[in-house]
Each structure stands twice: as C-alpha cells, then as structure tokens.
Design a protein around this nucleic acid. Structure first.
Lengths: 145, 145
DNA sequence: CGTCCTCCGTCAACCTGGTTGACCGGCGGG
DNA sequence: CCCGCCGGTCAACCAGGTTGACGGAGGACG
C-alpha cells in the first residue's frame, strides 16, 4: 500500500531512516554493509557470540533468513561460526575483531541517526512520535488477529 | 534495518496498517486484491481513466512496476486498457464497472483503517503523529541527498 | 515532406529481503 | 536404546519492485 497517507508516511519514514543509516555506515568505513546486517550486529552477544537460531528469534525473522545474513557477514570476515562446545548440533556466531569494530560503529551510526531525528523534531515531539507508534503497533497488531 | 527502534516502529506500523487494509478489502469482497493494487485504485481518474505513465508518476513508482499492477487488475477484470484517442502511442487505463465498485470500497477501507487509528490515538495525537512524520520524511529526504 | 528527438507502453532480466518445506545429524527423555 | 525434537543447512519460491532496451507514434524544425 502507498496511499493511506499515514501508511505511506510510515513506509517513507522507514526508508529515509534506513538509508541514512546505510550512508552513515558507508562514511564510517563499511560501505559493503546493508541495513539488514544490523539485525546481526545489534542482536549478537558481543563477547560470547550467539547461536543462529537465537539471532533469528531476536531479530524476529526465520532462521533461514538470518542464515543468509550470517553467510554474508562470514564471507566478508565480520563473523565466524564456531562449534558450540555445549551442543554438537549448534554453532555459535561470533564477531571477529573486525566485526567488533564494525558492531560498535553500527551502534553509533544508528544512534546518530536517531538523535538527528530527535534534534529535528525536538525531544517532546520525538517522544510523542515514538509513543504514538508504539501504541499503534501494539494495539493494531493484537486487535486484528 | 530493524533495530533503530524508531525505524523498526515505522516499518512495523506500516506493516500493521497495510495488513489491516488488506483484511478490510477481503471482508468487503475483494480478497484477491493486494495492498499494492491500491496504488492504482487511489490514483486513477474514476471517470475518464488515466494513462499508465501518469499512474506511475502519481504512485511514485516506475512505469514498469505500475504495468505489473495494471496487468494484474486487467486480468481480473477491474480495468481495461483503451487506446487514447488523442495520442496513438498511449493507452488509457479505465475502470470497469466492477473496478469502480472496487475503487469505492478501497477508499472506504483505507479511510476506515485511518480513522480506526485516529480513534485509537485521539485526534490530537494522530495529527501530531502525522505532522512529525511529514517533517521527518521531508527534511531527512532532502538533507541526506 | 523528411528528419530526428522525445515519449508511451512493453518485454526481459535482475535485485532485495525475505518465506516455507525438506532434510540431516546430534541431543536427550522415556 | 530409541524416538521425537531441535539446530543448521539446502532448495525453491515469492513480493514488490528496479534498470535497460526497444518499437512505434508524435511533433518540432528545416
């Protein structure tokens, strides 16, 4: 949908924020990272690493979808898969040194974008926006189903 | 991206509204319509019809993308392509009788969802939400590029 | 009246960001 | 010790677009 005006604004808003984050990542030296990769960087346990399935659960996507992201990041040297000593089935996705640097930049990029938006709107309106959105997704999601 | 919290909320909010509209369309007897089809129904001139390129422009998508939507709706009998008498290159996408009924329902479905959201938040917060979003997409879009 | 650039609609190929289904091989409770 | 469950993986598929190329009609201009 595009046309609800409200719905369109939400989608556009997301697009705008996402592309700002993408640019911020480029500028910080990680041009090859897509916004989707943040689902890994922002959900992984920085020290110990995290299982694929757990990452998928945290990011609210299928494990297959998460696997694609992890494959990609592994290829590029941001994470490694190491066997989980506690469970022969499992592997732990662990940040490499480069991955840790990148995760830090990713967090900074995200928070830079958010605080840019906050400055633009002002604290009060920013909080109102956030609260209204939370209410909208919470109630509507539950109500429809 | 999922993780900006704000960005995620925007995306989720859109998803929620879109699926509400989709359900509303189903309930009104058009289960085969996808939210994307609204880009046609909400942008087409109801009486005279509208050229494909113009539809694409209004919906802010490529004409090829719009063509897929129109193809789909034509197959299902909601629109017809008729040659434009004023321009031999062009065709006018025109609603069929069924298409006109559907367009009306689509508008109602969309506005039902919006006013549901409005009731949920209250007029004042709804307007604040909309205004904040507009500011966000306007300023951020321009500023980044 | 011919030439040439522009614009319309179309076909084809491709991309992003996922999804579901099937499966293998370890885990572990009965 | 066996059988069901769970972690990771492969494969196929989907939605909702995108860009590129192109044929044919329009129309300005010489």
């Amino acid at each position: 949908m595009q046309e609800t005006a409200l719905a369109r604004l939400l989608l556009e808003g997301h697009r705008v924020l996402a592309s700002e984050v993408g640019e911020a990542l480029s500028e910080r030296g990680f041009p090859e990272l897509r916004p989707g990769h943040l689902a890994v960087f922002l959900n992984i346990d920085r020290r110990s690493g995290t299982r694929l399935t757990e990452l998928a659960r945290r990011a609210r996507m299928s494990k297959q979808g998460m696997m694609i992201l992890v494959d990609d990041l592994e290829e590029r040297g941001y994470v490694r898969r190491v066997p989980d000593p506690e469970d022969g089935r499992a592997k732990v996705v662990r940040l490499t040194a480069r991955g840790r640097r990148c995760a830090a930049e990713a967090r900074r990029a995200v928070s830079a974008v958010e605080s840019r938006a906050r400055r633009q709107l002002g604290d009060r309106r920013f909080e109102l926006l956030r609260e209204a959105l939370e209410e909208l997704v919470a109630a509507e999601g539950g109500e429809v189903a």
